[in-house]
Nucleic acid binder design. Structure first.
Lengths: 347, 347
DNA sequence: CTGTCCTCAGTAAGCGCTTACGTAAGCACT
DNA sequence: AGTGCTTACGTAAGCGCTTACTGAGGACAG
């Protein structure tokens, strides 16, 4: 394999000049530049990323840590976390700065080690909520800059970006109340104490309070964030002496499961019961009735997180920042809206 | 930031020993090991990936090049290429070997440069079909091992893995003919000369020939792989004096678009016209009628590609290999099947 | 003619690891 | 005591770049 020395010799300059040309800075003539580039081309030389990284203390890579990339979803199922959109957003922001994105799931066999190995290869890390224990997070934070993604509680001294779950849930619930006049609403959570679910429930309660309706202490049911969980949750709700007019789910998957249950029970949606989800996964448009939901700006989340990371890398001691991205209510049939209309954004 | 020297001094050993301990090999006592690990922990030391890479000529990273990660899909739309599944498969295989995955899209502003920059940071590259020109591919291939993903034509001297598009299309078309007795079939392609589309069309023709039916020269229409393209293609097909009984689409997106057109035209599916897609995207289960389609083993593709890459890295001069992964017909309502049943795999 | 500044380019000292090689000590067996 | 093997560890030479420093030469002002 060719090295910078070969290229330098072949083009008759020093390695310093080759380096300068490759970095694209200044300090060389046009003629020199051409000679160097020609030599590099002829030798098919690609500067070693490792050597560059070592000498310049910048790898040109940002890391993205997911909780469980390696999960065993049925193929053909949506991932509840929209990994791909986040990755794309991150990739876009990184590419704009000439960086690449290294990804890793933390929940696999060798997860923890992997994370540390990734940390050693990057200039900074974007960590999704739930990927790391507080301890590991702290430890990692001591060796590279970290931005938390979708972690409601900005960790001590770390930057964070998240979607406005609470505002989104409030907005969609208000739409149900104000736009359609429902007075009996229920909320279905994912799993006990899941931060996303709790925030969305808080937003749900905000809207009820605002409308002067009575506020439940806890979600009417829990569905584990899955379709089948949503089916069961809906069964539970139907068992109540007086089922609600509308129910808000903590994510789309559960809402879609609930739709199946309702179809089987021959309960017309939205005529007899209105349904709303959260996330706007791809399937939400395709189920019948199409699902009213709240869109999370997943791609923007990834993009902003990486931007924040760059800022932190450039200025390690700047003030920490917590960015909150607004969500968007997407109105479809399941809430009772006739046409597909989009409401404004929250916050 | 701590270095190996600090750790060595603190634990009273040489850097060589620290290195050996970190690599997890042999050549040190248990007591030494503990001392080193303790020192490393106290100093929050993470070995520099760059330095490691430079000294050992292994970065522990595999690269994944996509054509257009940075595309501007509507959020909430499926990506036609199942990027996330491929990424997961790749990540799984890489993680199993202790490696991480670096991803990059090649079609963005700085795409080409990015690809070369990625090439310099990895031990090998998995390149998706359509990401690189033959020239660039050759050039990259001269500096790192490359495995082609989903590229029908294994490039000179490169390993490749792909799904059995032709076999899958043949299988699903045969099902339409043999299973349901349709004799008038049409095929809708994506874009002119798109390799995937052409292979699937070839499989479609195989099945017709096998059944002794007359074989069209070209697809009945082209839909550009998008939903709206599928809607238009179906309009075109309906304009024919005698529309077919069944139509096979080169991907699910177009088939789903076609379903919309048919619903609006009040043509019952599958009663009056049967529909089949290709890919088994998430939405295929959710549209009504649910879409009969062919599942591509996307995750396996990613996994196999990375495995192949490791083999090539380990043995640079071994014989090149081309792996063909079988596809699976997924029967749902849109072809005329009553219940959701799964047929066997192809090839 | 001298001093100053600017441009283009070379010299060489690292960057933080890995690893080939060397050494010393311990042990078993002559 | 000598030989040979094994284990445990240190020495030091890189790996292929970047960059601070230095310098040569030319342009230009005084």
């Amino acid at each position: 394999m060719a090295t910078i020395y070969h290229v330098a010799r072949r083009s008759g300059v020093s390695t310093a000049t080759v380096s300068r040309v490759m970095k694209g800075g200044t300090g060389f003539s046009a003629a020199t530049r051409e000679r160097v580039l020609a030599a590099a081309g002829e030798l098919a030389w690609v500067p070693s990323g490792s050597a560059r990284g070592l000498a310049s203390r910048r790898t040109g890579i940002v890391g993205l840590i997911f909780p469980d990339l390696d999960n065993t979803d049925e193929p053909g199922q949506d991932s509840p976390l929209y990994f791909d959109q986040i990755i794309r957003g991150a990739e876009r922001a990184a590419t704009a700065m000439g960086d690449a994105v290294l990804i890793a799931g933390s929940r696999c066999a060798t997860g923890r080690d992997l994370v540390f190995s990734v940390a050693s290869k990057v200039d900074g890390l974007v960590v999704l909520a739930g990927s790391l224990s507080k301890r590991d997070l702290d430890q990692i934070g001591r060796s590279v800059p970290v931005v938390l993604l979708a972690d409601r509680a900005a960790h001590r001294g770390m930057d964070g970006v998240a979607a406005d779950n609470r505002g989104g849930a409030r907005a969609i619930t208000s739409h149900l109340i104000v736009g359609h006049g429902y007075r009996e609403l229920a909320f279905v959570g994912g799993v006990q104490r899941a931060p996303d679910s709790m925030e969305r429930f808080a937003g749900f309660r905000d809207a009820l309070k605002e409308a002067g309706l009575s506020i439940p202490e806890a979600p009417a049911a829990l569905g584990g964030f899955t379709e089948s969980g949503g089916e069961l949750a809906m069964h539970e709700i139907l068992r109540a002496p007086r089922p609600p007019e509308a129910v808000v789910f903590a994510n789309d998957q559960m809402a879609i499961g609930a739709l199946s249950t309702l179809r089987r029970a021959r309960i017309p949606v939205p005529a007899q019961m209105a349904i709303a989800g959260f996330d706007d996964i791809a399937a939400a448009r395709h189920v019948r009735p199409a699902l009213t939901t709240v869109r999370q700006p997943m791609r923007d989340l990834g993009e902003q997180a990486v931007r924040l990371l760059f800022e932190r890398v450039a200025e390690p001691d700047g003030a920490r920042r917590a960015v909150l991205l607004s969500t968007e209510v997407v109105l479809r049939r399941s809430c009772g809206c006739g046409a597909r209309v989009r409401a404004g954004a929250t916050s």
